[in-house]
Design a protein around this nucleic acid. Structure first.
Length: 390
RNA sequence: GGAGGGGUACUCAAGCGGCCAACGAGGUCAGACUGUAAAUCUGAUGGCUUAUGCCUUCGAAGGUUCAAAUCCUUCCCCCUCCA
């Protein structure tokens, strides 16, 4: 592909490309670019938000560039201050190692294992001695460090900023020096770190890398960035049904955001579809990626059955209760079976018409389960349970 | 080290002796409407054998009072200013 087209293709969905002309110039040299993206294995569960950058890496890979998947096992111990309002706690080496493994497993669901260069920055940081660190620190100054929004804010508001956090961007920049990166990708919250990397490279007489940042994926609430702590995430290890359901619950507007950042689909074609169809296609694509096409198909069918036709799911969890135990009130039964955490909650749901027994809506909180035959209990829209007595 | 401000339910945030299981907003859950959407509307939102009832909750522990989230004492934590 000619450089101009590549630039256009690669900027799709990107938050910022610094700069297009630099990228084009690098492409004109005709050699595969070294494209770096670092991931600090700080958490155990990855969610879709983490895959946005990987998705972009894949595009570089498809164009024949050398993708470097950098595991920040050294930087993970420092903790990236990006977007943090507090100094974050450090992790143990063991946790980091475990997380790194998960990251790789997930990364290769998107990237080609054979074509990707996997590195760890402990390779060089382990060997670095104090003098070298001091030397590295000499390449940057405090005033510029404090330009950074999250530092400035914390600093002026009397919060804590540790020197360790100052080191972080320097380390990330040094990674680029070692890896001789031509391009670096990151989330848009990484912009500062990436900019520092350019300076560090210059200080080491290297051509500064081109920076390509990706927008942060907005969570399922449609407001905040996807993050585990906000509870608005879709984990990529979640069961197919869950992933499918959560994607379907997105608003139409959000769906396009997901399309753009998580797939390579032709947006204009997708927009011509009926929104529901488009959403199903999106959900299938994502489930296929992290599970399989078969499971995606099954999840779609199930979904249509339960919600589209108000039917019952193919598989309903079953709970066996003792026949000897006195048959209690409905309230008791749904708490016992764990459908609902407390009796007050159960009564509330019943009063509000959210509980169905054998397709009959029950609104009397004193209702009793009188027969020991099987009963199908439905709570809310998606909680189904079959109760059997033995 | 000195002076002041503050810690309330999932979150933010009122309340500052009884009318407080605790205003309000957000979130969440349920119902209606739909494309399981979103938006909107309605309701609920500590627990308990639903009871104009009881129990637990307002940083922690004590105390005053018929009665405390509200007053007092000690302790812990956070913030602001000064040094």
């Amino acid at each position: 592909m000619d450089p101009k087209k590549q630039v256009a293709f690669l900027s799709r969905g990107a938050a910022e490309l610094l700069t297009p002309s630099e990228l084009e110039a690098k492409l004109h040299k005709g050699k595969p670019l070294r494209v770096k993206a670092g991931f600090d294995p700080t958490i155990a569960d990855l969610h879709l938000g983490h895959t946005v950058v990987m998705q972009k890496l894949k595009q570089f890979e498809e164009l024949g560039h050398q993708v470097i998947f950098l595991i920040g096992d050294a930087t993970a111990r420092v903790g990236d201050p990006s977007g943090q309002s507090k100094t974050r706690p450090t992790l143990s080496a063991k946790e980091i190692e475990q997380n790194a493994k998960t990251y790789l497993d997930q990364a290769f669901k998107i990237l080609d294992k054979k074509k990707t260069e996997v590195r760890r920055n402990s390779e060089w940081f382990k060997k670095m001695n104090a003098m070298e660190i001091v030397d590295l620190a000499g390449h940057y100054n405090v005033a510029r460090m404090l330009e950074r929004e999250d530092f400035k804010k914390r600093y002026t508001e009397g919060g804590q900023v540790t020197i360790q956090e100052f080191i972080y961007p320097l380390m990330q920049g040094y990674d680029s020096v070692v890896l001789k990166a031509d391009v670096e990708l990151g989330g848009s919250d990484q912009k500062f770190n990436l900019a520092v990397a350019r300076d560090i490279q210059r200080a080491h007489a290297q051509d500064p890398e081109v920076i390509l940042t990706m927008p942060l994926l907005v969570g399922t609430d449609g407001v905040k960035k996807m993050s585990k702590s906000y509870g608005n995430y879709i984990g990529i290890t979640e069961p197919p049904k869950e992933i499918f359901g959560k994607l379907m619950a997105l608003s139409d507007e959000m769906m396009w955001h997901y399309y753009e950042l998580l797939t390579d689909e032709d947006l204009s074609a997708a927009k011509k579809m009926h929104p529901k169809e488009a959403k199903i296609a999106l959900a299938k694509a994502i489930v296929t990626r992290y599970h399989s096409a078969k499971e995606a198909e099954a999840a779609a069918e199930e979904f249509e059955k339960v919600f589209g036709q108000k039917g019952k799911p193919g598989e309903i969890e079953e709970k066996v209760l003792s026949r000897k135990a006195p048959l209690g009130s409905l309230v008791q039964v749904i708490v016992q079976t764990g459908l609902v955490p407390s009796k007050s909650e159960a009564r509330r749901l019943i009063e509000q018409g959210g509980v169905t027994v054998d397709d009959q809506k029950i609104q009397d909180i004193h209702a009793q389960i009188t027969t020991t035959s099987d009963h199908l209990i439905k709570v809310g829209k998606r909680r189904f349970l079959r109760v059997r007595f033995e």
